[in-house]
């Protein structure tokens, strides 16, 4: 009886070894030791767990250790306590890098989510060419960030196409990537342009779960487009919002490739981020200890903002 009452997919009783004995009568005594069907043992994962521990966590902890030293990458080192962190907080250039990192992270989060959602809404239903357009908008995602950045560098060049187009309208040419006020925005544009397609796909997956009947019922009741979006669509795609915003925030906080390819952190540090400073201090200037402190700080910032963001997008219903 138990078996016939369940759904065809319900194999829980069988797997747990609680199925009645064949031929009816007294049910078999449940065996606690082993299920009838099992797919593995916890220790099978031990080599992988050990590898993750060694490669990720022990290595990271080892890197964090150097944050409290003055190691130059070669030879001996001394413990300097919190000196590296004090130096970070006292250096206006590094505070500027922190501000740039936060600007790019939140600008990237907002831009990709707003444009990604708009594209997803526009290409969700009805439009005949939506499949072609989805492919076109997603294509930049599969390209290498470096390749994309070098193409945009050409576009932003003083003698490049952007200034050429502006010249048609009589505008003065600009040094987009060498202007301290414009360069950071240029980096943000390139980052957002390449990744919006990814966010669009996440939202398209979310929109596919929104029941059309409810939207149609709301429309028949006279709800405006905005009210339908606000009260039906948005609550339904809340998991997609959480995923997209978390991914974009983390990606924005650790931006590196685009900055290095477009500006190298210049002009004079105007587009420097924590990630580029970590690279520069560690590998270009051989300040391994200081670079490790910067990396640790970046990790902590990413951790804090990820937790805050998760809390902000948590489904409280």
């Amino acid at each position: 009886m138990t078996a016939t009452m369940g759904t065809p997919q319900d194999t829980g009783a069988l797997v747990r070894g609680t199925a009645p004995a064949a031929g009816g009568g007294q049910p078999a005594r449940p065996r606690r030791s082993r299920p009838l069907i099992s797919y593995g043992r916890w220790w099978w994962a031990l080599p992988a767990v050990l590898a993750v521990l060694l490669i990720h966590y022990v290595a990271t902890a080892g890197g964090a250790f150097y944050a409290f030293t003055n190691w130059t990458g070669i030879g001996d080192f001394d413990f300097v306590g919190l000196d590296n962190f004090r130096r970070i907080l006292e250096d206006p250039a590094l505070i500027g890098s922190l501000k740039n990192t936060l600007f790019l992270a939140f600008g990237f989060l907002i831009a990709t989510n707003v444009f990604g959602l708009l594209l997803a809404l526009a290409l969700n239903r009805s439009l005949k060419t939506r499949y072609v357009l989805r492919v076109l908008f997603f294509m930049p995602v599969v390209l290498s960030p470096l390749a994309v950045s070098y193409i945009w560098k050409f576009i932003f060049d003083f003698n490049g196409p952007l200034n050429g187009v502006l010249a048609w309208f009589g505008a003065e040419p600009r040094t987009w990537l060498a202007d301290p006020t414009l360069a950071l925005w240029a980096v943000l544009v390139v980052m957002s342009w390449q990744t919006t397609g990814m966010v669009m796909v996440i939202y398209l997956a979310g929109l596919a779960t929104v029941p059309m009947e409810i939207e149609e019922a709301a429309a028949l009741d006279g709800a405006s487009t905005w009210r339908r979006f606000r009260h039906i669509t948005l609550p339904s795609i809340r998991p997609s919002v959480a995923i997209a915003s978390t991914l974009m925030l983390i990606q924005g906080l650790r931006v590196f490739d685009q900055v290095m390819a477009l500006t190298g952190g210049g002009p004079a540090g105007a587009t420097e981020t924590l990630a580029t400073q970590v690279y520069k201090e560690t590998f270009a200037l051989s300040n391994f200890g200081f670079g490790a402190a910067l990396a640790l700080l970046l990790t902590l910032i990413m951790l804090v903002f990820s937790v805050l963001q998760q809390a902000a997008t948590k489904d409280r219903s």
Binding site: T175, A178, P180, G266, P267, A268, L285, S286
Partner: peptide
């Protein structure tokens, strides 16, 4: 004494050319 000195000179001059500092 260290590569940071040349880096400070280089980026500083870059800033002068871009109107910074």
């Amino acid at each position: 004494p260290n590569p940071g000195v040349y880096d400070a000179l280089s980026t500083g001059v870059q800033g002068l050319l871009a109107g910074q500092g």
